[in-house]
Design a protein around this nucleic acid. Structure first.
Lengths: 196, 196
DNA sequence: GTTATTATTGAACCAAAGTTCATTATCGGA
DNA sequence: TCCGATAATGAACTTTGGTTCAATAATAAC
């Protein structure tokens, strides 16, 4: 027998996040990922069946983290719907702050995977949106959110808007301080552009 | 001499929109585009220097149409800022009602091109956003829009949100009637989620 | 009708990158 | 210390698909 030295599976995943973030999925080379992870090219295939499986594993991790967070938030009884909505926005931002590369992959590659409805990614995305909808519906029921707005549309709009801003930020972090983005999104989502 | 039969350049561009919409840029094959256009593979290269030039030409067309529209809107004196804002949203929807495939390409591939700052695409995008900013600034000056909101952030958020919804629509047109999307976006952009 | 010129063709070319696998290295057990 | 078994390697293989170009077709000019 021979023992596996270190956690190569994890090292490859971390390396892939960096490489995907830098080059984008389609331009990322398996050899680059292996090099970044400090393993041989062939070793990648000992842990993942192929390139696509790697990015699917990354998104599994992202969505697991987000759905866990939003699920816990939705269940809380000591938060108003408004506070819950803010918390969901915070969840996405926190992920970015902790791991900017992961965030870059998230905002840039999500669509490809959803489009092909590959693996569990789209299911987890749907689950996230469903939980968001629960929060909004609670707000409407408690007469705090505008009942006119279509929930299914609204949640897509918000998530899309946030992703668009995060993409800008990950491309040019200096021009958009993340906290200003966060505050503006919260204010805008709640009140819109018009003066009350 | 020999005259060119038909407008192959246009036929190829139209075919490319369809193929890119269906398969995505990276999975689209030049041969498929040629076949769809009813020309030989090699003919594509008589009109475009390469694959990337084709999608750049598509985006040139999209952004030209949008910037022309928003420019004309911004200049009008018979519209309130609120009406201008609605008009900008209508502009994006009208383009895509006419050509849903074009919408799919727009929402799915824009980022790749911006990211690499390829050709004139990013410049035209910036120009579009600048014109949007002019409209918003007018609204703030006339005390109709909330001055708290950061303009540069706001415009990214809106455009990102709209794109996200259009993506959904182009993937499953039946579940999201386009006019409902349009009305909801207008209401949400103006008032946000909270009840006034 | 002949020829020159340009348009068009599509099979072949070629580079890039995902994947494989024969070889080598390392470790646990006897 | 030697052996068996698994981990790891990375050069070679293979596929994919963008691009090329020699051959052919079509039209205008004379």
């Amino acid at each position: 027998m021979r023992r596996r030295e270190g956690n190569k599976e994890q090292a490859i995943l971390d390396a892939a996040v960096k490489v995907f973030a830098h080059s984008g999925y389609h331009n990322a080379k398996i050899t680059s990922i292996a090099e970044e992870a400090g393993v041989a090219t062939g070793s990648v295939y000992l842990y993942y069946p192929g390139k696509e499986a790697i990015i699917l594993a990354i998104f599994d991790r992202i969505w697991k983290s987000l759905t866990d967070g939003i699920g816990a938030t939705a269940r809380r009884t000591d938060f108003t719907p408004e506070q819950k909505l803010e918390r969901v926005i915070d969840l996405m931002f926190d992920l970015f702050i902790v791991n900017p590369s992961l965030a870059a992959v998230f905002v840039n590659e999500q669509d490809h995977l959803i489009q092909g409805r590959k693996g569990t990614v789209s299911r987890q995305f749907d689950q996230f949106l469903d939980l968001a909808e629960v929060i909004i519906r609670e707000g409407v029921r408690k007469k705090q959110f505008n009942p006119q707005i279509d929930l299914k549309l609204f949640r897509h709009f918000i998530v899309g808007g946030i992703r668009s801003l995060l993409r800008q930020w990950s491309a040019q972090p200096s021009t958009f301080p993340l906290n200003r983005i966060r505050q503006n999104i919260k204010a805008f989502v709640k009140h819109g552009v018009l003066i009350r």
